[in-house]
Design a binder for these strands. Structure first.
Lengths: 143, 143
DNA sequence: CTACAAGTTAAAGTGAACTTGAAGTCAAGA
DNA sequence: TCTTGACTTCAAGTTCACTTTAACTTGTAG
C-alpha cells in the first residue's frame, strides 16, 4: 500500500496550513504529483521534508536559506548520515552563536540590576557595532 | 553646558539610522524638542532610551511591546533600580525561555546525528503543536 | 441531478520595521 | 547671490512568510 495523501491530510499531520504548503511548492521547497483532477497528491516522504523546513525555521533560517540547504540533500534518495551531518554542522554553529548572544544579553541584564548602574547605554550591552550595518529596506530581524 | 544633539549626531552615536529615529518618534518611542528651524534637538538622555530600544529588540521584543515597556518607566525622572528590575524580570523570562528552546533544538540536532536515525519528523523535534496556532496573515517569526 | 465539500489558480493583502524618494525649508560659506 | 548641506514632511516602496479572496473545477453523497 503506497498510499498518497491529499493536501488537507498533509496539513493536518504536519500542522502547516494548506496555503503555506502551496506556497512552499511555489518556492520549490516541496513538490507534488497531481491526480487526474489536478489535485495535489503527496507521498508520505514529504512529511519529513516539511518537518525539516519547520525545524530549520525554528532554528532561525529563512526560507531562502532552507531552500539552499534542501538543494544539498539528494532529491532521489533518503538522506544518509553524512548528508545530514554536513548540514547540521552549519546549523549547530548558528544555534550556538545565537545562544551565546542571548546569554551575553541575559548576563548583562542581571549585571545591570545587580550593580544598580541602570545604564544599559554605558554598559554597552546593546552593542551597536554588531547589529548596525544592515542596509536596504524591509524588516531586519536579528539572526 | 546642557548641549542638545542633532538627529545625525544621535544617529552616529547610537548606530541607529536617522530615518529609524524619525520612525520611532512617530511611534511614540522617543520624543524631541524642535529648534526654531523645525529641526529636531535631542537631550543626551535620549541615547539611553535608544539603547533600551535596541537592547529590547535584540532580546526579541517587538516595537509595540517595547512601547508598552517604555510606558511603564517614569517619563519625568531617570529610572530607578526598582523600575528597572520590574521590567527586566519579564525580559529575563523571555530570554531564558528562548535559550531553553534553542538548547532543546540543538540537543535534538546532535542526538539525531549521533543515533543516526536521521528522522527529525519521528524525533518530534519540530514539534508542530507549540508553533502552530498562529493565525492571520503576515510573517510569523518564532518568539 | 443537485448540493456541497474540497480542491485549483492568480492576484492582492497583511504586519513588522523600516527605507527611499520627492519636494521643500533654512543657515552658513564662497 | 548662489550653492551646499543638513534638515523637514508625507507618501510610497521593500522584504518576509504567508493568508485571503475571487472565480472556477472536481469528487462524492443523497
Amino acid at each position: 500500500m503506497d498510499k498518497v495523501l491529499t493536501i488537507s491530510e498533509i496539513s493536518r499531520r504536519s500542522g502547516v496550513a494548506a496555503s503555506a504548503l502551496r506556497f512552499y511548492e511555489e518556492r520549490g521547497l516541496i513538490t507534488s504529483e497531481r491526480a487526474g483532477s489536478g489535485h495535489r497528491r503527496y507521498p508520505r516522504s514529504v512529511l519529513r521534508r516539511i518537518a525539516f523546513i519547520v525545524f530549520a525555521q525554528r532554528i532561525g533560517l529563512s526560507l531562502t536559506e532552507i531552500g539552499e540547504e534542501l538543494a544539498k540533500l539528494p532529491a532521489d534518495r533518503t538522506p544518509k548520515r553524512e548528508d545530514w551531518s554536513r548540514l547540521s554542522g552549519i546549523w549547530l554553529k548558528r544555534v550556538n552563536a545565537r545562544i551565546a548572544e542571548l546569554e551575553r544579553l541575559r548576563d548583562g541584564l542581571t549585571a545591570c540590576i545587580g550593580c544598580g548602574c541602570l545604564s544599559i547605554d554605558r554598559c554597552e550591552l546593546s552593542n551597536p557595532q554588531d547589529h548596525a550595518g544592515r542596509n536596504g529596506p524591509g524588516p531586519r530581524y536579528w539572526m
